[in-house]
Design a protein around this nucleic acid. Structure first.
Lengths: 210, 210
DNA sequence: AGATGTGAATGAGTTCACAGCT
DNA sequence: AGCTGTGAACTCATTCACATCT
């Protein structure tokens, strides 16, 4: 069964919400209350969860602990997922040091760059190695997911290098359309386009009286 | 007329592609060739563009220069859009120094943080000011778009502060579900959820023979 | 009673295929 | 002849409303 990305992302979100509830000592919750607390849709929560079996108890709600466990397994978050960051500039370095990329089943285990000044130094425990050795670094660290934080002009060649080295998923921050390799999961994170979306709505919406 | 976000994002993308073509000296291009060069869908390009008038010439294609101009105006990219970054940690600082946030009609004009060590220093020409003065900073700089790069726990209060100060669009990098204010355009960029999507497909897809 | 699970209805978004223009 | 513009078909996603179960 193939879960569409949108639904998958919501499952990640539910899991995060449930963990927060668990920290607060909540043991059971209904779809309605979950929706209200985190600004989600109750019907959608039920539909999303029901697809994978009957996790809920009718008339009661969902058991927080049990549901966390089910979602964790469903999302493959018990397995460890090592990351390699390609391009240790400002953004790459920030991600290497970030909590989101270094907790749970994720950890940045390698970083490469082509700047001789950077090679050999460390950012938050991550040793920066020579980009020319990328394939060897991937093999040594068994990095599974590549994080592309290089300029647009260098993106395709580094993507190809990651794929050749055996990486099977890539998160691309470069503002360019990659020619994708079959069998490799890729996702673009295009912050410039997000900004332009914001900008558009500003020019369109009327300014409120203030 | 209200353009749905997905379509809007594609228009941004087309504009970027066209600019790259212009730099290469291309004056005319068909939807098919545009699609092939940048791995897009020709039918979708035509449909997206046709919605706003007849930009193309049947039998020929689109005039690159004219289309760039139309899209630029359509997206509101002739107007200047000042940004304020809230939370000058690693990610906030990286964005403050990034090209994408400091070119065309966008520029980071302010940064705030609550760390006394950082206040008063500069990151890439952006002076870091006291987060408590956020409202005054927004008014002085006339920042239009807020970029939220604070920890999850601080996100809601800083979001509310931005909105109260008059910011009308927010790009939220904090991994939390904000209670949104009416009339304010907001978008979540949740890198952790993007990562989990990658991780999921790794556990599901069979490893290729290598 | 009260909340889940789900078919049916609705809506959004994409692809197809070709009429119509240059 | 060739490529755009577009109605129609199709696929994907969300919401509704209620039968179903504890």
């Amino acid at each position: 069964m193939e879960i569409p990305p949108l639904k998958l992302n919501r499952l990640s979100l539910y899991l995060r919400c449930l963990r927060s509830l668990e920290d607060d000592g909540v043991e059971r919750i209904s779809s309605l209350e979950l929706a209200q607390r985190f600004h989600l849709s109750a019907a959608q929560i039920r539909k999303d969860l029901a697809q994978f079996g009957e996790f809920g108890i009718r008339g009661v709600g969902y058991e927080v602990g049990a549901l966390i466990e089910s979602l964790t397994r469903l999302l493959g978050l018990e397995r460890f997922h090592p990351l390699i960051i390609v391009g240790m500039g400002n953004l790459g370095s920030a991600l290497a040091a970030s909590v989101g990329f270094n907790s749970g089943s994720f950890q940045v285990v390698a970083g490469v760059d082509n700047d001789p000044e950077k090679i050999g130094s460390r950012v938050a425990d991550v040793l920066i190695e020579d980009a020319r050795d990328m394939a060897a670094v991937v093999r040594r660290t068994e990095a599974e997911i590549g994080v592309l934080t290089v300029p647009a002009a260098a993106a395709q060649s580094n993507y190809d290098g990651l794929v050749d080295a055996g990486v099977r998923a890539v998160l691309n921050f470069a503002p360019t359309r990659l020619k994708l390799a079959p069998g490799v999961r890729s996702k673009d994170v295009d912050l410039r386009i997000d900004l332009e979306e914001m900008g558009y709505f500003l020019t369109r919406s009327k300014r409120p009286v203030r």
